[in-house]
Simulated assay, not measured.
Amino acid sequence: MASDPSCPFTNPPYYEFPTHRLHSTMRNPAKQPIVLVACGSFSPVTYLHLRMFEMAVDYVRQNTDFEIVGGYLSPVSDQYKKPGLLSAHHRVTMCTLAAEQTSSWLMVDPWEAYQSYQRTAVVLDHFDYEINTRGRGVTTPTGERKHVRPMLLAGSDLIATMSEPGVWSEPDLEHILGRYGVLIVERAGADMDQAIDNLSRWRHNIHLIHQLIQNDVSSTKVRLFLKRGLSVRYLLPAPVVDYIEENALYVDDGPTASASSGAIAAEKEKEREREREAGSSGRGKEKEKAAAP
């Protein structure tokens, strides 16, 4: 895509904002259209990441006057420098496999992943610009244009950090919680009351979603399982598990994991090929022995 001189953001090369599952027309014009945005490492993306969106759908339908018109996963940049963070290429690919093959409405926006580190407030501004300035929002059944409000979707650990003095800047908190708002999914063992009390000035824009079925699957635990050679099937979407196995990801959860994964995968394939050849040779010798007098 040619660079737009009027765009206030720097886009990665060949970037296109995904809109193929974004609803362009509202069902209920009396409601406020929103888009859910989940920012995170997604290293790797788990069923809990996807489940958060479904819990948000139920919460919004039953407790608010919002109408969800889209949902996005936004993987962080490699420059986030978090331990266990695989390359953006792998993380975006895994998120895309999960969204496209297990969901009918989720999308992956690679804008944040393929450039320098972007603050969450800026990421939400990016969605606001793409959907409302460039995309001109959504329409009602009568043709009226309405502004779509991006809202952050996150686990309760995020709101806990927001309530700690000095972790987030006051302007960013005002921007995220005051302008956009957040839907927080409760995590097992988290005490949310104190965190929300510390953010009471934005309480009207903080929506707490309780988990009716507790799920404490985390990317950290998944990486540990993979490093130990344990199965992670049914913890992650099957296409993601297949991708991890095919590329030998997280075998070494150190700083060289991304660079070495391809070499490991190639070596494993060579080993499998040698085993197939050896097996074929062995079966041939057994047949020769059986045919001998």
Score class of each variant (00 low, 15 high):
residue 227 K to G: 11
residue 129 Y to Q: 01
residue 248 A to P: 00
residue 209 I to N: 12
residue 253 D to G: 05
residue 269 E to P: 04
residue 71 G to N: 06
residue 154 A to Q: 05
residue 260 S to W: 06
residue 59 Y to Q: 08
residue 243 Y to G: 09
residue 203 R to E: 08
residue 245 E to N: 14
residue 49 H to N: 11
residue 219 S to G: 14
residue 196 I to D: 01
residue 266 A to H: 02
residue 207 H to G: 05
residue 131 I to H: 02
residue 38 A to N: 09
residue 187 R to Y: 00
residue 212 L to N: 14
residue 269 E to R: 10
residue 247 N to C: 08
residue 16 E to D: 11
residue 88 A to S: 10
residue 105 W to C: 10
residue 255 P to N: 07
residue 140 T to Q: 04
residue 89 H to V: 11
residue 109 D to I: 06
residue 246 E to P: 01
residue 121 A to R: 05
residue 186 E to R: 11
residue 105 W to M: 08
residue 37 V to M: 13
residue 201 R to Q: 15
residue 216 D to C: 02
residue 1 M to D: 02
residue 28 N to E: 09
residue 68 I to N: 09
residue 36 L to F: 12
residue 197 D to S: 09
residue 191 D to E: 15
residue 190 A to N: 12
residue 47 Y to T: 05
residue 292 A to H: 09
residue 190 A to Y: 13
residue 81 K to I: 00
residue 255 P to G: 04
residue 178 G to M: 10
residue 102 T to W: 02
residue 285 K to R: 15
residue 18 P to A: 04
residue 273 E to N: 09
residue 87 S to W: 05
residue 134 R to K: 14
residue 31 K to N: 00
residue 214 Q to C: 07
residue 192 M to R: 04
residue 151 M to T: 10
residue 270 K to F: 06
residue 56 A to C: 13
residue 234 Y to Q: 05
residue 266 A to P: 01
residue 287 K to F: 08
residue 76 V to P: 07
residue 280 S to P: 00
residue 276 R to Q: 07
residue 26 M to N: 06
residue 125 D to E: 15
residue 132 N to D: 03
residue 133 T to M: 04
residue 126 H to D: 02
residue 104 S to Y: 11
residue 20 H to F: 11
residue 34 I to C: 05
residue 22 L to P: 07
residue 189 G to P: 07
residue 291 A to M: 13
residue 179 R to M: 12
residue 241 V to C: 12
residue 18 P to R: 07
residue 17 F to W: 07
residue 172 D to C: 01
residue 129 Y to W: 12
residue 291 A to K: 15
residue 250 Y to V: 04
residue 195 A to M: 04
residue 225 F to M: 15
residue 25 T to M: 13
residue 288 E to R: 15
residue 283 R to E: 15
residue 275 E to R: 14
residue 11 N to R: 03
residue 98 A to Y: 08
residue 267 E to P: 00
residue 200 S to N: 11
residue 158 L to Y: 08
residue 172 D to A: 07
residue 147 H to S: 08
residue 16 E to I: 14
residue 199 L to Y: 02
residue 290 A to L: 13
residue 48 L to C: 00
residue 114 Y to S: 07
residue 232 V to S: 06
residue 225 F to R: 15
residue 161 T to K: 13
residue 234 Y to R: 06
residue 27 R to Q: 13
residue 221 K to C: 05
residue 45 V to N: 03
residue 93 T to S: 11
residue 274 R to D: 04
residue 213 I to F: 03
residue 162 M to G: 03
residue 132 N to P: 12
residue 81 K to V: 02
residue 264 I to Q: 14
residue 164 E to C: 03
residue 256 T to K: 09
residue 149 R to N: 04
residue 249 L to N: 04
residue 21 R to N: 06
residue 18 P to M: 07
residue 277 E to V: 13
